[in-house]
């Protein structure tokens, strides 16, 4: 049963997913080219100095990429479900509705983990060509909140699309927007090092929001 759900979810999102991957590769490649150009036109030591002490984020183009991928995957996966209330059919499958909804979210989450890891590996390789590991560590610390924001947007997209009432949609949307904006507060690299565990726990707990929307969906469409 799970395998067939997985296949169905993959069919829904595959082109969007691959599109996100292509965009991601393009952005990582662009960061690589930009770095090469900056180092060609400046002395390497002044580039290091600028990155370390002026806190210049050479990877800032990556900032909204995880959020964007999370959003388009969420739309591709959940928007079709509310067209003609297709989700109603799924809820008749021989599987408990909560398990069904959680499987859908789990599949999307795993796919996001794969794409984000893949992009982070690319970004790490680009960084290590020019810089020592200390700069890579700070990059990973700094990029992590943006990645978590990607998951938040995906979970919220799931809860939003399955939700049937506009009032609730607006509530979740506004609160989530306020929450996601926190991940983009800029205070230089490494500034999220203390807060990221709690932010991650909150983000993960949001994966369950789809259940309430699913429950309301089922009740509302009976």
């Amino acid at each position: 049963m799970f395998a067939s759900i997985m296949y169905k979810e993959w069919l829904k999102i595959r082109w969007t997913y691959l599109g996100g991957a292509v965009l991601g590769v393009f952005i990582v490649f662009e960061i690589f080219l930009n770095l090469g150009q900056i180092i060609e036109f400046n002395k390497a030591n002044s580039v290091w100095n600028y990155i370390i002490f002026q806190k210049y984020l050479f990877y800032s183009d990556f900032q909204f990429l995880p959020a964007f991928i999370g959003l388009i995957v969420g739309i591709a996966q959940y928007f079709p479900e509310i067209q003609d209330k297709r989700l109603k059919l799924h809820l008749h499958l021989p599987m408990r509705e909560n398990n069904l909804l959680l499987s859908m979210v789990a599949i999307g989450t795993v796919l996001l983990i794969i794409i984000y890891s893949f992009l982070l590996i690319g970004l790490s390789l680009v960084t290590l060509i020019y810089f020592p590991y200390e700069i890579l560590v700070s990059l990973l610390n700094t990029v992590l909140p943006w990645i978590v924001a990607g998951f938040v947007i995906y979970f919220i997209a799931a809860a939003l699309f399955i939700e049937i009432r506009w009032a609730r949609r607006i509530l979740i949307g506004v609160i989530a927007f306020a929450f996601v904006s926190m991940f983009y507060y800029y205070m230089g690299y490494d500034s999220f090092n203390k807060a990221i565990p709690v932010f991650t726990i909150i983000a993960l707990s949001l994966s369950l929001l789809i259940l309430l929307s699913g429950y309301r969906f089922k009740r509302g469409t009976k």
Partner: peptide
């Protein structure tokens, strides 16, 4: 306590 990457010229 401002964090800095521990590399110095």
């Amino acid at each position: 306590e401002e964090p800095f990457i521990q590399l110095y010229p």
